[in-house]
Nucleic acid binder design. Structure first.
Lengths: 180, 180
DNA sequence: CATTATATATAGCGATCACTATATATTCTC
DNA sequence: GAGAATATATAGTGATCGCTATATATAATG
């Protein structure tokens, strides 16, 4: 399972074939389909596994407690620590795993988890900044999408750490800003 | 040409087949290969055409003149105007056109243009902020990557406009910040 | 041990991939 | 108008895609 998740994470949904997944799992196609139903079924499990584990940076940042500013700051810093390439895996599986996939269902699955993640971020922010929860949530998710993208393009931990610092300051500035 | 570029832009390099490109161009495979050499050859032309046109938001922002802060601010705002979906096309072809492609050469081509674009941004910033040109350039490219990604995921002009405003303020703040 | 049920492997399904060999039509030169 | 050169279309190359029908091995039950 973790092996298959790794492959999807490394190269994206389309670029990983069922044959390769079978080889990685040490099984043959019929067993693959008996176990997961379809390639999409395995991808769904991979996303679930990913979101339930330590890669769910916002969930981890939440556990640290503190106010919204602190949680969001930790979220950015966790992303900067987790996203850079490690054993060929970079960025976020949820954000980029189904990107540019030719399979509409795979894209929809990615969108579903992205929406879920955004909702969690938004709800957290709303506790302190109800009026601007949506805009601040968009700020966070867009920044994370950028971090995942450049990480997949080769950005290292230093660069992402700098960006995380910038975004943490930007978040505090925007949260405290008077509305237009 | 513009038709093929549109297809790559819409769905990414891998998700567009040669057969579909031929149909869109109104030619048959042999003529396709006589004209472009390969699918990759057409993609290269598409990237060149894209970077030479109005989609090169930084080039457009530069033409407006003014200081670095103004140019970068316009860059973000132009991205917010250009990236939202229009006729099924969203985000940036250079940033996301080859993302998750199984073809290493296509990915390399995308990386090449991304590096070129980053260099232009860096050089512009260096004129006023030589000591922190690299860090500020990373700030801009990462933000643009995030904007392209969320635009491809459905973000609208309002959302991206807000983010552009945030990033413009963040850029000015970071540019004026004392070094750590 | 015989029989039934379960799970595995072999092999191959049709479809699509990027790409091309061959043949036909067209255009240019003389 | 005849012949040579160019460009087009038809058709199909092997490879790979996700997926499965059939057959064989294993395990559970009587």
């Amino acid at each position: 399972m973790a092996t298959a998740m790794r492959l999807f994470h490394q190269r994206g949904y389309d670029a990983v074939g069922v044959a390769e997944l079978c080889a990685a799992l040490g099984i043959k196609p019929p067993s693959f389909y008996a176990a997961f139903g379809s390639k999409l079924g395995l991808f769904e499990q991979a996303l679930r596994h990913y979101a339930a584990g330590p890669a769910n940076i916002f969930a981890r940042a939440l556990e640290g407690g503190g106010g919204v500013d602190a949680v969001i700051g930790r979220t950015f810093r966790e992303a900067a620590r987790l996203y850079p390439a490690c054993d060929g895996v970079a960025g976020c599986l949820v954000i980029d795993g189904a990107r540019n996939s030719a399979d509409a269902e795979a894209r929809a699955l990615g969108a579903l988890w992205k929406a879920d993640s955004r909702r969690a971020i938004r709800d957290c922010i709303a506790a302190e900044y109800p009026a601007k929860a949506d805009r601040l949530a968009d700020l966070v998710t867009t920044a994370l999408a950028g971090m995942s993208a450049v990480a997949r393009d080769g950005a290292d931990a230093d660069m992402l750490g700098d960006f995380a610092g910038v975004m943490e300051r930007a978040f505090r500035a925007e949260a405290g800003r008077a509305d237009d």
